[in-house]
Design a protein around this nucleic acid. Structure first.
Lengths: 196, 196
DNA sequence: CCTACCGATCGGTAGG
DNA sequence: CCTACCGATCGGTAGG
């Protein structure tokens, strides 16, 4: 008689991540979630507090993963360009390791209720701040051109955040996260144009 | 006695665009929509066929706007780099002129039901194809570096698509669509790095 | 454009 | 973990 490899709570959370990703938070019902796990709807509440609570856990776990990595990178004694490269690699790698959760993190966070919603926005702001700091230092050190810091950060993060879509729909070529990070870095750092 | 400037149907669609943007499609109720317009819920159905029908109209109107512009640009007798620049400008301008609808277009399209959903994806694929063609030609003409076309298109469109967020939350500096397009073009074409 | 209403479904609780 | 069930809300229709 094999013991279950993961707890029922983890089963529920995994199924919820996938369902929130596929249908969105609002369109996901606790009844369908229960069916997916193989128990009655009421039984879910022996393992989780509420639908909203699952969303909160998924969103903040992802936020924490992004944060842990960027805070290791920020203190590395290397050039700003090297740090930016590492931050990009790390960001794509975190997404790659959590495809379902990433999709929820990027698309369903606005269904968070207060005060979680404000806390979430605050964390995201701090994360963006870390990227801006790297760009600022790179400009000061003469490694980067005199770009608009806010809009550059926006461009970088927009491109990176969208990769969850590439990683969950590996069309034709099965491209991996290192290759994606490498190629996006190249485009963002060196640009598309040939002449200068 | 002033005549209404826009039809009731248009009032409903405007309110729906805004509500779908703010709360998402699934979390928007026809009762709240009716309240916003100032009529009884049942009265909505004298002007619109269904909730799904409004979503379809919003999504496909936007798709058409994007398309109309790109198909004018594709035949211009100018360099690939100049055409890419124009395509970027146009894309941001369409978003800027339809901030609510853009948000719905980018975030709520997956709530489209078949066959509209497949038709929508097909149109998006064709749009991306136009961008890929510009990049391909630019590489062949020696204007662009030997970049990965699929991933470059992905990077460009990810950055551009996210601008609806900048345009609807004009934080501190009230940046306009021309400036956004200009700066994103610069980053994508010339890159962030200084050396080479 | 409204009143009145339909059947279906929602998140969650009581009690065992 | 289940049976039984709560009140609330959903998109939409009938009929005028």
């Amino acid at each position: 008689m094999a013991e279950p490899l993961i707890s029922r709570k983890e089963q529920i959370r995994n199924a919820a991540r996938n369902m929130f990703k596929e249908r969105g938070y609002a369109a996901s019902s606790m009844r369908d979630l229960a069916k997916e796990v193989g128990i009655e709807p009421a039984s879910l509440y022996n393992h989780i507090a509420s639908k909203q609570d699952i969303l909160k856990e998924v969103c903040f776990e992802m936020a924490q993963e992004f944060f842990d990595n960027i805070e290791l990178i920020r203190v590395l004694p290397i050039s700003a360009a090297a740090r930016l490269k590492k931050a990009i690699d790390s960001h794509v790698q975190v997404i790659s390791a959590n495809v379902d959760a990433s999709s929820v993190f990027f698309n369903e966070w606005r269904h968070l209720e207060e005060p979680a919603l404000s806390e979430f926005k605050r964390m995201r702001q701090r994360y963006e701040h870390e990227f801006r700091e790297i760009l600022k230092e790179g400009i000061n050190m003469g490694e980067f051109r005199m770009i608009d810091i806010k809009l550059s950060t926006f461009t970088i993060l927009s491109s990176l955040n969208a990769t969850y879509d590439l990683l969950q729909n590996p069309q034709s070529s099965n491209i991996d996260s290192e290759e994606i990070a490498e190629k996006i870095s190249l485009i963002l750092l060196k640009g598309i144009s040939k002449n200068q």
